[in-house]
Computed example of a mutant assay.
Amino acid sequence: MPSTLLTDIAEAKITAAAGSGAQVAITHIALGDGNGANYGPSFSQTALRRERARKPIDKRHIVGSNAWRVKAEFGPETAAFHVREMGFFDADGDLIAIWAGNDVQARQTGAITYLVDHVLSFKRVGEGLIIVNAPDDDLFDLAVATGTAIANLNLEQLRQAGAIRAAHGDN
């Protein structure tokens, strides 16, 4: 199963940031073709096996404590290749996290827009030490807020209906 892991570089930067108020800020996503083959990522990697495209993260959304949903679009002008690896880089250009695996289902770029919609989760890292530095996904936030408001309204209506039935019977 493909996995996302923190690199040794990330661990060193996180250790340096701990207690200092500093953060490791992921800013870019890179796509690679794994040099033509799937592979299991390594903590010691400092780069993708063969990076083919890189761009800043378009949008981000916090989905939990130390978990970020990141989005990026690689347009149709992106060179055509099969994506077998993704790298998440900080502002210094260092590889912080890598996604790859021996059973990756490679997807093709080029000619159409290639969408990245990925959740980065850093459960073993102190809260706030790693962030995603990108614009907020306002549309996603609005959809979640609207869905929550509708669900709360429905729950209140059910509560009131139950109170009315209890007071006046089921008729």
Rank of each mutant, 00 (worst) to 15 (best):
W99R: 14
R50F: 10
R159D: 05
I130H: 05
G126A: 10
T113I: 15
Y114G: 02
I29S: 00
N102Q: 14
N66H: 10
G75V: 13
D137Q: 06
N154L: 14
F89E: 01
T113Q: 05
A100N: 05
G169P: 08
R107L: 12
G147H: 01
G34E: 03
F74A: 02
H82K: 03
V63G: 00
G128N: 05
G169H: 11
Q108H: 12
T4R: 04
T46K: 14
G32V: 06
A80T: 15
S44A: 14
F43K: 11
L115Y: 15
G87L: 08
N152M: 15
M1W: 10
A79C: 07
A10G: 07
L129Y: 08
V116M: 03
A37S: 14
E127K: 13
E156G: 03
D138M: 11
A17C: 01
T15C: 01
A53T: 08
V116T: 04
M1C: 10
R49K: 13
F81A: 00
E11W: 10
V116P: 01
E73F: 09
I130K: 05
T78R: 06
G169I: 11
E51I: 10
K71N: 08
R84G: 04
L95G: 03
G36R: 05
H61D: 03
T46N: 09
D90S: 08
A167V: 03
A30S: 12
D137E: 02
R124P: 03
F88H: 03
D94N: 14
D33R: 10
P41E: 01
E51H: 06
A53I: 08
A149W: 09
P135Q: 09
R84P: 04
